[in-house]
Amino acid sequence: LASRMGGLFERYPGLEVELVAVPRFVSILNREAEISIHLERPSVDQLVTRKLTDYRLALYASRAYLARNPPIEKREDLAAHAWIDYVDDLLFSQELKFLSSFCRNPKVVFHSTSVIAQHQAARSGLGIAVLPCFMAAGDPDLVPLLPAESIQRSYWISSRRELHKSVRLRVLWDYVVELCAREQGLLLGEPTEETG
């Protein structure tokens, strides 16, 4: 989102936005935020919630890692490789528990609560990472592996019912919804002219 907010400020130059990225659920009801984007659909009646977008996660590794390790041609080859994953005890959502979807007994060499740290670890050659396509697809240091092997997840957007009537909040809400609709190809990992 941060790299795509310019259009919003061109339309509304007086607007001020605070983007808080934390590895846990933010409570809208406790006024920790006015809008929240979740990995799971909130089940609270006092919220206005809608699906924001689907997105795809796929396997990526650096060229350097691939050059010094056995080739990966099929799913069974993955067991012989090093992996990058979340810290199990600190997962704030079961939607992040997806490594076993790709490899039954992965040899995880690096754990982090941050997907950005996992991305950087993959770039540095530590192993294979399951990354959102919108984050990894444009990275020239990373190679997508086994294109047929991917998983799809969803983001949900919420705000408190009384706040949802606020023009200021709706401006941001509508912009984020439009942006995700416009960027569906990137979010779903569809090939572009640049990525082939």
Results as ranks from 00 to 15, higher is better:
A2I: 14
M5I: 04
G7H: 03
Y12L: 11
P13G: 11
V17E: 00
V20R: 14
A21H: 09
A21V: 13
V22F: 15
R24G: 03
L29T: 13
L29S: 12
L29V: 12
N30Q: 15
A33F: 12
A33K: 10
I37V: 14
H38S: 10
V44I: 02
V48T: 07
R50V: 08
T53H: 05
D54K: 03
Y55L: 13
A58E: 10
L59N: 08
Y60W: 12
R63H: 12
A64V: 12
Y65T: 02
R68P: 02
I72K: 13
K74R: 15
E76P: 08
A80H: 09
H81D: 03
Y86A: 13
D89T: 05
S93H: 04
Q94I: 03
E95P: 02
E95W: 01
K97Q: 06
F98A: 03
L99S: 09
R104T: 06
P106L: 07
K107L: 10
K107E: 07
K107I: 09
V108N: 06
T113V: 15
V115E: 10
I116G: 09
H119I: 00
S124V: 00
S124D: 01
G125F: 01
L131G: 00
F134I: 00
D139N: 01
P140C: 02
D141G: 01
L145H: 09
P147M: 01
A148C: 04
S158M: 07
R160K: 14
L163T: 03
H164M: 11
L169D: 07
L179C: 03
R182A: 14
L186S: 09
L186G: 02
E190K: 10
T192N: 06
